[in-house]
Design a protein around this nucleic acid. Structure first.
Length: 280
DNA sequence: GTCTACCCAAGCGGACGGAA
DNA sequence: TTCCGTCCGCTTGGGTAGAC
């Protein structure tokens, strides 16, 4: 399993890896690996970046992240002091080159197609969670059978994409580190003004080279990305802290100007911040 | 306190060239 | 061939003013 910018050792003779992570926070570096990841999160919440998109994750989510899709979990340790994730890692060729090509498994094509952008499972979640609970006490053969059951359930479930664009080319080590630095800086400093000069210095590039570099890998400009992070955090504050006025929320999320906040909020969420608060 | 319209500076991206 | 720097014109983000 090659993961950037770090590597997780995986025994070469294991086709399927079942892993349980119990930490204060999930690993918070941007990374990608060849294996498809199906994860169940019993505990924890925070922000998940997959490809070009910023998503929220919370306890009881079931997420599928395709092979080589860059992603990073940013745990909210205030909202949830403990994080736990149960994950199955495997790839298309784990059980032989043509295993998923046989006619009896044709239904799984849809699963692999959707996994390319990542997905959140919206229905049949209790059944899938039930299958995850069996994994810990199972041997390898039983775990492979459970994996097929989970894939079948996910295929029949309603799902929502976690991203709209994924950079098809695998990141090199240097690219992984550079993009990780940029993502990390944006996630940590979103509440402060960030200039192009500043972020291009983080990426160790000129301003224009950075613009091109970022757009090519995420299909959006750095400032579109930054605004999405700010608006996602604003949504959390609007819902979780009703005592904060909209103008304070905009300040907390890095908008110096409420006019601009309102405009960007409406563009991304389809309603004004006040309407959003009323709705939720 | 919230939202919209307008305007200007900052940001973006195409074209081109140099380096590896 | 790919990546990155520079130039330059167009686009967009963010600030101000004002209405509700």
């Amino acid at each position: 399993m090659k993961v950037l910018p770090f590597k997780i050792p995986k025994p070469r003779n294991e086709a399927l890896v079942y892993q349980v992570d119990r930490e204060e926070a999930f690993y918070d570096q941007l990374h990608q690996h060849g294996e498809i990841q199906i994860s169940y999160i019993p505990q924890g919440e925070g922000t998940l970046i997959v490809g070009d998109s910023i998503n929220e994750y919370k306890a009881h989510d079931i997420l599928v992240i395709g092979g080589f899709v860059p992603h990073v979990f940013k745990s909210d340790t205030v909202a949830s002091p403990r994080s736990e994730m149960h994950t199955l890692f495997f790839d298309l060729h784990s059980f032989g080159k043509d295993f998923f090509e046989i006619a009896d498994l044709s239904l799984t094509k849809e699963f692999f197609k959707k996994s390319e952008l990542g997905m959140r499972v919206l229905s049949n979640t209790q059944q899938i969670i039930g299958e995850f609970h069996k994994l810990a006490s199972q041997n390898k053969v039983e775990q492979i059978a459970t994996l097929l059951t989970i894939i079948s359930l996910v295929t029949k479930s309603k799902t929502a994409s976690l991203s709209s664009f994924v950079y098809k080319k695998s990141f090199s080590d240097d690219e992984g580190k550079r993009m990780n630095n940029v993502y990390k800086y944006a996630m940590e400093q979103y509440s402060e003004p960030i200039s192009l000069e500043e972020i291009s210095t983080v990426a160790n590039m000129s301003r224009n080279a950075f613009c091109r570099y970022f757009k090519k890998r995420t299909n959006k400009t750095f400032f579109q990305f930054l605004i999405e992070i700010r608006i996602e955090n604003a949504c959390k504050l609007i819902v979780n802290k009703p005592e904060l006025s909209i103008s304070l929320v905009s300040e907390e999320c890095g908008f110096n100007n409420i006019a601009n906040f309102n405009r960007k909020f409406k563009e991304l969420k389809g309603c004004s911040p006040t309407q959003y608060r009323t709705r939720f």
